[in-house]
């Protein structure tokens, strides 16, 4: 799932409500996602270049991202800083910008990549499932996801590694009741997390 090509789903399209900044992480790197006025999704490193405050603590204002600390504004697309209230009449240095990541919106999911190659899978169909964060490493989660897909062919699952010990199960369900699928994923999460507790207790 996460192994096929470097593209990883990190959000659902429906997660990006107007004016809202969505917060996630990929392999230890914080990411902030938001939709510009043109509808295109921005995936940025979740860190303002000024003093390192998370962009996801900020707001979308006038089609730009506004950092909560000093209200610097950053343009959709390029990530260029467009306005610094502390020096409103000065040119904004070109060196000041957000760090955009690759982005693709496919099958109701928003994908990014550590190093973009090719494109996300083209054969996806179905309704987007609720994403479930799991307090287990991506490899363990991927194993469980593979077992779920083998037992339930209507599910197409992907694993987003958050950090070394945490990952998110995402995916689509084609022709299966979403609530039923959600219960399957919740049960899988319990199995994964209870296994970790038992391992820890045995040490």
């Amino acid at each position: 799932m996460s192994g096929r090509g470097p593209w990883v789903p990190v959000a659902a399209s429906a997660d990006l409500a107007p004016g809202h900044v969505y917060q996630t992480m990929l392999a230890g790197q914080g990411l902030a996602l938001w939709r510009g006025d043109d509808g295109a999704v921005n995936v940025w490193e979740d860190r303002c270049p000024h003093r390192g405050v998370r962009f996801s603590a900020g707001d979308v204002v006038g089609g730009e991202l506004r950092c909560v600390y000093h209200a610097w504004r950053f343009a959709a697309g390029s990530g260029a800083c467009t306005f610094i209230p502390a020096q409103p009449n000065a040119k904004v240095p070109r060196a000041i910008h957000a760090t955009p990541w690759p982005v693709a919106e496919v099958a109701g999911l928003v994908w990014t990549a550590l190093a973009a190659q090719g494109a996300p899978p083209a054969d996806l169909a179905g309704e987007v499932l609720r994403a479930l964060p799991v307090n287990r490493p991506a490899a363990a989660v991927a194993q469980e996801a593979a077992a779920l897909m083998a037992a339930h062919p209507a599910l197409r699952l992907f694993v987003q590694p958050l950090a070394a010990d945490r990952a998110v199960i995402r995916g689509l369900a084609a022709g299966v009741d979403i609530m039923a699928a959600d219960l399957l994923l919740e049960a899988a999460r319990r199995r994964l997390e209870d296994a970790a507790l038992m391992e820890a207790a045995a040490c």
Binding site: V61, G63, R66, P88, R94
Partner: peptide, 16 residues
């Protein structure tokens, strides 16, 4: 907590 900011003020475009 933080209140939502006022909508962006009209301002001259800044050329970098």
């Amino acid at each position: 907590t933080f209140a939502p900011p006022a909508p962006a003020p009209v301002r001259q475009p800044v050329r970098a």
